[in-house]
Amino acid sequence: MSSIKIIKPGLFTTIQDSGRMGFQRYGMPVAGAMDNFSFRIANILVGNDQYEAVLETTFMGPTIEIGFDGFIAITGANMSPKLNGKDIKMWRSIQVNKGDQLTLSGSSEGLRSYIAFGGGLAVPEIMDSKSTYVRGSLGGFKGRKLQEGDEIPIDTSKSKAEPGKYISPGYIPRYSKTNVVRVVLGPQDDHFPSEAIDTFLNSEYNITAEADGMGYRLEGPKLTHIKGPDIISDGIVFGSVQVPGHGSPIVMMADRQTTGGYTKIATVIWADLPTMAQMGPGDSIRFQSVSIEEAQEILEQYEQTIDDIKYRVENSNIIQEETKVYNVTINRL
């Protein structure tokens, strides 16, 4: 089978798909790609199933020796990707040949890049997923982040990739260091006095250095509880905003644990999690409350946008720059 070889692993590069769903009742964390949008688009651009495993790389990208003739696509944060030293474009399918060297460097905009390979990464599925759960030493490639010398098989025989696939510029998210992130209040918003809810929704919060795949601790005006920060442990989701005794919110991310005993004031809506995932320490957030009905309408638009992109990618073969700008709500407001 064809493969890729890791020459330099970058800061934190792992194999991720949509995560390990269906096993949380056993205490198994979901893991999976942090930026659901970039991850799915990368796959769509190389003709893969949109939930196929990709490489997720954080802050500083890898150098990879390509061991096959085929296609790749790079989405997400801009890490100035180069093929054999020459700049290549993101958000489109790129033809590669055996022996090529792909280099990503530090991210200039956004935090996480995604690299999809036509045919997909051929690592075994564990509990229906190829995602790496690093804390549990499970999944992906040997259950860990990639290291120099790792060779990962690529199933190019399954590739349906074609040259010249791209998405219209209007669909490409622009990453900013300051973002409004929408939340649905609850499940434990009633454990907070109304002043705390007002503070939460009307203040700027900065992402601290304590930010990883499990969660982002934020810094800003402290939030007080009515009867203390602890609850009898219940379920946590991607985007849960929990507030422990120190009063600073923590946004739970892809590698979160399944259950927890802190009050959760709100939950970041699915369509804004890619925005969160591309933000890092020092960046700032303002939370905006939407109703559950609004949130589910926004989710429908989000999925519709991805469907539209998929349709356009599958039904266009003309290599040309599109200049039309579409109004989309993904990743920005």
Binding site: L185, P187, V237, G239, T267, W270
Partner: peptide
């Protein structure tokens, strides 16, 4: 019934 975002809810 408590909403836990747009894709989950908690039945308490």
């Amino acid at each position: 019934f408590l909403p836990a975002g747009d894709k989950a809810l908690i039945v308490e």
